[in-house]
Structures are given as structure tokens and as C-alpha cells.
Computed example of a mutant assay.
Amino acid sequence: MATPKFPHVTPSFHAVLKQRVNKYFEEQKKSTTGGWRILSKGMILVAALTTTYIVLMLVQMPVWVALSLSGLMGLLIATIGFNIMHDGGHGSFSKYAFVNKLAALTLNILGGSAFMWNQKHNVIHHAYTNVHDVDDDLDAGIFLRLSKHQPKLGIHKVQHFYFWFLYCLLYLFWIFYSDFGKYFSRQIGSLPLKKMSLKDHLSFWIGKLLFAAVFMIIPIYVHGFLSWMIGFLVMTMLSGFVLSIVFQLAHTVQDTAFPLANEVTGKMDDEWAVHQLKTTANFATRSRVISWLVGGLNFQVEHHLFPRISHIHYPAINKIVKEACAEFNVTYIEYRTLGKAVASHVGYLRSLGQMV
């Protein structure tokens, strides 16, 4: 299918934003990448995950301690995804391309595919956020209705009750089904997948085999199948829920829009940057703890406008974006707390389950 086009307008909100943000970095004499701050964070998180894994493999402990450490591993996997893989995939982790590549490839070690993520997230989701039948993030099959443009089934009337469990399954679905579905169908949703090179194929399969060896075969050999299965489910389900809820709070809430392209022209109503403001929301931006853990993805507006800028700079450019929005009369969507954002997401799912 043909992808939608965004109009070029004058004066351009996006051009003004870029000019002001570029000026900020020039005046502050700062790099747009993460520098030592994100590198040190990455080292802490990788060391924490590695240590937790080794302790689980080598130390005899009570069941409740083992399950707690399995849950901690799940949280660390999600946090590494937010802080290392995500910035690396966008080229904002480091000024060195090979370091960004290594950061992005942490996803392969953790069971995913950096190639598939780049196509699905960077290329499609960031360009066509919340656009029905294009943004694959809105496709949860028959299980969830995430857009008013999707058909409503009877089960959706109670989706605001059962979505919690489905989110816990995201990680398992991702590494064991979704990646393979894209790989063999050569499609992401309705769009064709970029042709994979030999290196891309090898990276895909080596990553899957490495994950199976580290997180499945070795633990089964050490602890037995049943113990591994329980710990593995705790790890993956907690990681899946955290990954899901953070990304859902950014786009599927009561105040975000789900615009469609004009059926005749194939164009969207708004220029790209305004579209991003209408389809994206921030949450809990005053919480340094949440910002640190989720890799600045609570500043989702700034991330979507400037994906190649590291998340450590989002609090600073947040002020610039808000000022420009006020000047251009563009709505800036933000929930002051995590609780309010979750409540809005639940309310959104509930309303979609009721409306036709």
C-alpha cells in the first residue's frame, strides 16, 4: 500500500523547532548524543543484569529469592531496552557509529532483532505515528482495539480489564512469534520489509540462538525444566508488561489523535511535526527516577520530534518545544504523573470497547 504524505507548510512549525533546538546545542557547546552519562548508565545496567544472571546460575537460594531475582532480571531487560538499545537504534547513544550499532544489537542478545526493530519502530512508527493500517504498533490482532478505525468485537467491551495480562505476554510474543512472522512473511503489517543482507540474516539467527542458549538451555541444564520455566515466565512477563505500558502511555491515551490521510490525495492534514504533537503524550516528566529508568521515554513528545537526540537532553529541549507550541497554538499533551497517564490509557481502552 502507498504510505501517506505530509504537507509542506509555511511557516513551518518543524523548521522553527529544529532551528531553536540546534541553536541550543550550539550555544551550550553540547553534543546531541549521550556521552559519558549514558555510557556509564549502560555499564551499570549491563553489569547489574550480568551479575544477577550469574548469581541465579551459581548460588543456591530460597525459591522466593530466586523468583525475586528473576523479576529483577525482567526489569533490567526492559531498562536496557529503554536506555541502551533504544538510543543506540536511533543513533543517539554515541557519536561513534560502531558504538551505536553495538548498543542496538543488545536487543539481539535479549531475544529480539535489531533489524526488525529498526524497520518497525524507526522507519514506520516514527514516521506514521498512530496512522491506522500503517503504524504496526496499533495492531494487536483481535485481542485489543487500539484505534477507533479498527473493528469492534464483543470481547473489546472488557479489554480495559484484561489488557494487563496481555501486556505481560508482549515479550514472549515478540521474541517467539512476531519477529519470525516478519522474517518469513517479509512484511511489517501491510508494508514490505526492507531486503535483508547476508549480515542481517546471520545477525537475526545468531541472536535468536544466543538468547536460547543463555536464557533457556543453560538455565534448564543448571536448574531443571520446571524451575527454569517458572523463573523464565516471571522474567519475561514482568519485562513484557513494563515495555508495553511505557510505549502505550505515549500514544494510546484519551487525548492523543488517530488521524487518517485524505482518501483522494493521500495526504495527512498536518505537517509531520504537528502530527507528532497530536499523536504523542508525555507523562511524569518531573520524576527523575522514572526518567532514568525508562530512558527518557516519558518525554515521548521530544523523542518523536528529535529521535536522533539522546534522551539525556530531553528535559532541556522540553522547554523549547513547549514555547514553540504556545506560539504556534499547537496542543502539547502531558500527564503530570504516571498514575494519571495509566488512568487515561485505561479510560481510552474502555471507551474504544464501548463505541462503534
Rank of each mutant, 00 (worst) to 15 (best):
V134M: 09
H125N: 07
R37Q: 14
K120W: 15
K194C: 10
G35K: 01
I217F: 11
S40Q: 11
V356Y: 15
L39D: 08
A343I: 01
Y221N: 06
S94V: 04
A213D: 03
M57S: 00
I312P: 14
G339Q: 02
K157L: 11
F6H: 07
E27H: 13
L17A: 00
G231D: 03
F25P: 04
D179C: 12
F13E: 08
S94I: 00
H156T: 06
I124S: 07
S12I: 07
S113A: 12
D133C: 03
I188T: 13
T265G: 07
K278Y: 11
H132Q: 15
W228K: 02
A281Y: 00
S94W: 03
G42S: 00
N83L: 04
V301T: 13
V134I: 15
G224I: 02
M216V: 13
T280S: 03
T51C: 02
D133M: 09
V63H: 12
K30T: 12
Y335C: 00
I109K: 02
R286A: 11
S351Y: 15
N83P: 04
F143C: 03
F306D: 04
L170Y: 12
L297Q: 02
L260S: 14
D269C: 09
L107H: 08
P11K: 05
L170S: 13
Y171Q: 08
G296P: 06
L209R: 00
K182R: 14
S94A: 01
Y221S: 07
Q248A: 07
N130D: 12
V65T: 03
V246E: 06
L198R: 08
L102V: 12
V158A: 14
L349N: 01
G240Y: 08
G339I: 10
K208M: 00
D255W: 15
G88F: 10
P62L: 00
D136M: 10
Y96E: 11
I77K: 07
L58Q: 13
E334P: 05
T106Q: 09
F283T: 00
I309M: 02
N282L: 02
L293N: 10
G231P: 04
E263K: 15
M73E: 02
